[in-house]
Nucleic acid binder design. Structure first.
Length: 351
DNA sequence: ATCCAGGAAA
DNA sequence: TTTCCTGGAT
């Protein structure tokens, strides 16, 4: 049977040949067919670039070498290893998924449709697991692949986002080669990441430049079509940084939502610092406002006004379950959001 | 300072 | 459609 890709002027064979000569072959998750390791890498690579993932991947697998190890670990430990990587729902889903699989079949399936039902595993990630761990023929459609396809075939925007999504999936499916699925899939992602980049694509070295419509018409900059911009919101929050010199008082955030399940500074206004301290068994000695911290999210900007409070601890412990004293030398390894960890590590006597 | 890349769930 | 995060480029 002829490869579908051959219909589009050897689309797939061009990608496969390019991958063999110019693609990446040395990434840690390319050296294994262990579905567990492939799965971890694919979850970490969601919304996150390879260079960022590399150290997290190594530490994570050193700590949780098997699915059983991950399933048996407390969520807090998983979040500690995820601290700084962002999108913490990924870590919560990962943990839930490991427990569900361990309690059921015991291992991940080769079937993409089955894996796509797992927490945190969508259609594209499920396909990636099936391709790289099992050699199954399935279409991946991540941001890199979408960009390559949108340019090569000048995919115009459909009436609705749903229609557009359906068409891109159909295109991705139609282009799959009959053999060499691993090289092809890896090649599409590497091509998008290293050649067909959003800005200044390197069309001169692209294996598709002879058949790419965007390249032919000089429309690389306008494809893929830009997303609609959302108006950025501005949020303001006040936080208290209570320290007795050896430890800092942190609060476990609610299990879902922003920074869900992570430790962070308790949110309270500077006005209430003295009352807050006393409520948690402390006497307020000195306090001073730190320079406001700006942090950008996808849909809003957060300004954090932090009041640093030197306290004397009178009671034994904070009288609220979600609050805990963390030794300053444990900050680096704690499950903290990136800006909070950065702030604490930059503080004299902490970092 | 601003813009932007990068999937899944609700 | 909106909600999740961080780091790198400009």
């Amino acid at each position: 049977m002829a490869d579908a890709g051959d219909c589009a002027h050897g689309f797939a064979s061009r990608v496969i040949a390019w991958q063999a000569a110019n693609g990446r072959h040395d990434l840690p998750w390319q050296k294994t067919r262990d579905p567990y390791r492939i799965w971890i890498s694919e979850i970490m690579l969601q919304q996150t670039q390879v260079q960022t993932v590399l150290p997290y991947y190594a530490r994570f697998l050193a700590c949780f070498p098997t699915l059983e190890a991950l399933a048996g670990a407390p969520l807090e430990r998983v979040l500690e290893l995820w601290s700084g990587l962002g999108y913490y729902a990924r870590a919560r889903h990962l943990h839930r998924c490991a427990q569900a699989v361990a309690a059921g079949a015991g291992k991940l399936s080769a079937d993409p449709e089955e894996n796509a039902r797992l927490p945190g595993v969508g259609r594209s990630t499920a396909a990636a697991i099936s391709v790289f761990a099992f050699g199954r023929r399935a279409a991946i459609l991540d941001g890199n692949v979408k960009r390559v396809l949108a340019r090569c075939f000048a995919a115009e925007s459909a009436a609705t986002a749903t229609q557009e999504e359906r068409r891109m999936w159909a295109l991705a499916e139609a282009l799959l080669p009959g053999s060499g699925i691993e090289s092809y899939s890896q090649g599409m992602m590497d091509l998008g990441a290293t050649v067909c980049t959003r800005h200044q694509p390197r069309c001169a070295v692209c294996p598709l430049h002879e058949i790419c419509i965007a390249c032919r018409d000089g429309r690389q900059a306008e494809l893929p079509r830009r997303r609609t911009k959302r108006p950025p919101a501005q949020r303001l929050t006040s936080m208290l940084l209570l320290t007795d010199g050896r430890r800092v008082l942190l609060e476990r955030r609610p299990p879902v939502g922003l920074w869900g399940g992570l430790l962070s500074l308790p949110e309270a206004s500077a006005d209430g610092a003295e009352v807050f301290a006393e409520r948690h068994g402390c006497r307020l000695l000195t306090s001073r406002a730190l320079a406001p911290i700006e942090h950008s999210f996808t849909h809003f900007r957060l300004t954090m006004q932090v009041l640093r409070c030197q306290v004397e601890v009178l009671g034994q412990q904070a009288n609220q379950a979600s609050l805990e004293w963390l030794p300053v030398d444990a900050v680096a390894a704690a499950a903290l959001p990136a800006p909070i960890k950065k702030l604490l590590l930059a503080l004299p006597g902490v970092g």
